[in-house]
Amino acid sequence: MSEFVSLLSPAGDRHFDGLADKFASSLYVGARGELRLALLDRLLPEMLDLEGQPLLDVGGGLGQLTSWFSARGHAVTLAEPSGEMLARAREQLAGREVSLLQASLQALPQLAPGPWPLIACHAVLEWLADPRGAMATLASLLAPGGQLSLMVFNRDALRLSNVVKGNLKKALADRLEGKGLRKRLTPISPLTHGQIETWSAENGLVIREVAGIRVFADYLRRPPESDVDRERLLALEHCYCRLDPHWRLGRYLLYTLERPTPSHEETST
């Protein structure tokens, strides 16, 4: 029976207490996890204007992103609702000058209001019951001229992956969401590019950059076995991840969103 116990929070969000090891092994260990991190290492400096700004890492999990930004001179506040994940992050970030905050995204307007010049929210919205509301919250935390680095799990890529695996009935019925009833890591709210476009416009945010993360890797019949082939795959991913139509196939979609600075006319009225 415990296999079917709900793993959702009272708000209906998927948190990861009791799942830190599974989360780490599924998302960061192995060829796909290494490729994701390697692509971010290349793409973040290309897609963001980084000047050592203070950063709020929303749903920072095990601290990989916080570590990356901290190493580049940013004062980082990592916010994470799971106590277990936050403890693991604290171990990984030992010796770094970062702030750790146990808080859900919804609590951040009270606990870390900013406004922030730089926010990162990677692979979080797809685990929330109300990702649209979460976008509004993130926008409210962003300073004028500030940047939001947003990464979401791509619903369209999930559909294609199911077709490739032969799950035709599931794909045709568009039953792609996880239910949060098992210890599986299928997001409960996979998102589309169209949703991000709509929600960004609703909240006065402009999409400055977009890229697909793993536009080819998840569809390979077998993963690359040699270091040479892994480097070739990384080069191929990096070459095409920002080109249409390839970026649309990424397992994750990576965005740079910006809150425009008000014009002189707007501020004087």
Results as ranks from 00 to 15, higher is better:
N167I: 04
A201F: 06
P223Q: 11
G212I: 14
N162M: 11
G146I: 14
G114E: 09
V124Y: 05
E202Y: 03
E202R: 05
I207K: 04
K169R: 15
D156E: 15
T186K: 02
H122S: 12
K165N: 15
S226D: 11
D227Y: 08
W199N: 05
N154G: 08
N154F: 08
R159E: 12
L181G: 04
V210K: 02
L150C: 02
E231K: 08
L205M: 05
K165F: 00
R159Y: 07
I188V: 14
V215Y: 08
D229R: 08
L111Q: 15
A157T: 14
D156C: 10
Y219A: 11
M135L: 14
L220R: 12
V163Q: 05
F153S: 06
F153H: 06
Q195N: 14
G212A: 13
L148N: 12
P190M: 00
S140R: 15
L142Q: 09
V210N: 01
T198Y: 02
P115R: 07
D229K: 08
P223W: 06
N162C: 13
L205D: 01
D156H: 14
N167D: 12
K170H: 08
A134S: 00
A235K: 13
E225K: 12
S200H: 01
S161K: 11
L128R: 01
D130P: 00
G145A: 15
M151C: 06
S161V: 09
L142A: 02
I119Y: 03
N154C: 05
S200V: 01
E231T: 15
A112H: 05
E202M: 09
P113N: 11
M151A: 13
V228N: 14
W127R: 07
E177W: 02
C121G: 03
L160M: 15
R175D: 14
W116N: 10
V206S: 01
R132H: 01
P187C: 12
L158G: 03
T137W: 00
T198H: 01
S226P: 06
P115I: 12
V215T: 03
L172N: 10
S140C: 08
T137C: 09
G194L: 05
A217W: 06
P223R: 02
R182Y: 13
K170E: 15
F153K: 06
K169Q: 14
L142K: 10
W199E: 10
A112C: 07
G180D: 03
E225G: 13
A201W: 04
L236Y: 00
I207M: 04
P224Q: 14
A173V: 09
L176R: 07
E202F: 11
R232T: 00
E177N: 06
R222W: 07
E209M: 06
L160G: 08
C121W: 06
R221M: 04
L205G: 04
L138V: 09
R182P: 02
G133L: 09
P113L: 11
G204T: 00
L118T: 00
Y219D: 04
L168Y: 15
I213W: 04
D229S: 12
R222K: 15
A123C: 12
K165C: 05
A211M: 02
E202C: 01
T198K: 00
G212Q: 13
V124E: 06
R182E: 13
R221Q: 05
N154I: 03
T186M: 08
E225Q: 13
G166L: 07
N162G: 01
N162F: 09
G145I: 14
I213Q: 11
A211L: 03
G166T: 11
G194V: 14
A143I: 01
G146H: 07
L150N: 03
R230W: 13
S189V: 01
A217L: 10
